[in-house]
């Protein structure tokens, strides 16, 4: 008897014969049942500043207990973590860390949050979900850095336990998603809207790659979409690209391009626009009203924080985010 199954977790919708692995490499059809191959087996466990994710409006200056397993639903040619994201679970060095231990370790190391990151959390959905449920019970917050390539039903289910999400909006054309990431844009935009609807604190990261997605017209279109569908308060991070994986032929993103992207986004009406992966004043948070520096950052570290009870210390303007 043929025992085919279909995964309904991400838009890839893999149809798997008995013994086949999913495209994300983290799931397998075994005798007609779909199993997760990475549950409780992270290949990366670190304590990071929350700013590294990057989250700039979510508990600044705190640490996040960060985990990842092997696997990813996309295959971006520029992936910065391709050694683990494009690997099979049996090819990586894995820890044995079940969900309850993740939470107890996070508490022991005084981390305010658990972050599902580095690879693609959707690939280890079951592990993330179970961990998130336990973390919430213990008062530890849950955040994820994801490509947003997930179907609506699982995302809504997860959102009940998720406090914040940083979504990679890699570009604003279907062509880019098809050619560079082997995915598509539409499900990512839908995920952004769903997260907003579910009340999850949202930040967006856009990796600007020379010649591929640095066209200011496209960046402007993207920012307009964000403004119209998510509002002006969603922070966006324009991140600097460095040659990696299959895109070694391109140079790092020039600072001027990032500055121009930031200006474009602010001209459109987005209030909190950042530059990442490079030292620049665009790493800081400014008050949209009095324009004073609210949070001064040096890389991932917070040098000064002038937000008190969610308000600007100088002019009392309310600053959107999760501050305590």
């Amino acid at each position: 008897m043929i025992k085919r199954v279909q995964c309904e977790l991400c838009p890839n919708e893999c149809v798997l014969e008995n013994g086949q692995h999913s495209r994300c490499r983290a799931r397998m059809n075994k005798d007609g049942t779909l199993y997760s191959l990475v549950y409780g087996k992270p290949c990366a466990v670190h304590i990071d500043p929350i700013e590294k994710k990057p989250f700039f409006h979510f508990l600044p200056g705190t640490t996040a207990f960060s985990i990842a397993t092997a696997g990813c639903v996309l295959s971006c040619k520029f992936c910065q973590n391709w050694q683990i994201s494009q690997a099979n679970p049996e090819e990586t060095d894995n820890y044995d860390l079940p969900p309850d231990k993740v939470v107890s370790q996070a508490i022991a190391y005084k981390c305010k949050s658990v972050t599902y990151t580095y690879t693609e959390p959707t690939a280890f959905y079951e592990y993330m979900y179970d961990t998130a449920v336990i973390a919430k019970k213990h008062g530890v917050k849950n955040t994820m850095h994801s490509c947003g390539y997930i179907k609506e039903k699982p995302l809504r289910k997860l959102s009940k336990y998720l406090n914040a999400a940083d979504i990679d909006l890699k570009a604003f054309t279907e062509d880019y998603y098809n050619r560079i990431c082997s995915g598509s844009l539409k499900p990512v935009l839908n995920s952004l809207v769903v997260l907003k609807e579910e009340g999850v604190w949202l930040e967006i990261t856009n990796l600007v790659i020379p010649t591929l997605n640095d066209d200011m017209k496209n960046i402007k279109e993207m920012c307009k979409w964000i403004l119209n569908n998510l509002g002006p308060n969603v922070p966006i991070h324009f991140s600097r690209f460095f040659p990696n994986y299959k895109l070694n032929n391109l140079p790092p993103t020039p600072l001027e391009t990032l500055i121009e992207a930031r200006k474009t986004a602010m001209d459109v009406g987005l209030k909190f626009v950042y530059i990442g992966n490079i030292r620049h004043e665009g790493e800081n948070t400014f008050c949209p009203k009095c324009k004073k520096v609210l949070i001064e950052r040096i890389g991932y570290f917070v040098k000064q924080n002038n937000i008190s009870n969610g308000k600007c210390r100088f002019c009392s303007t309310s600053i959107p985010g999760v501050w305590s």
Binding site: K3, Y125, Y127
Partner: peptide, 12 residues
């Protein structure tokens, strides 16, 4: 023991 995945269906 492997963990059964969430969000999938049998086809046959």
């Amino acid at each position: 023991k492997l963990k059964e995945a969430m969000f999938w269906r049998k086809l046959d």
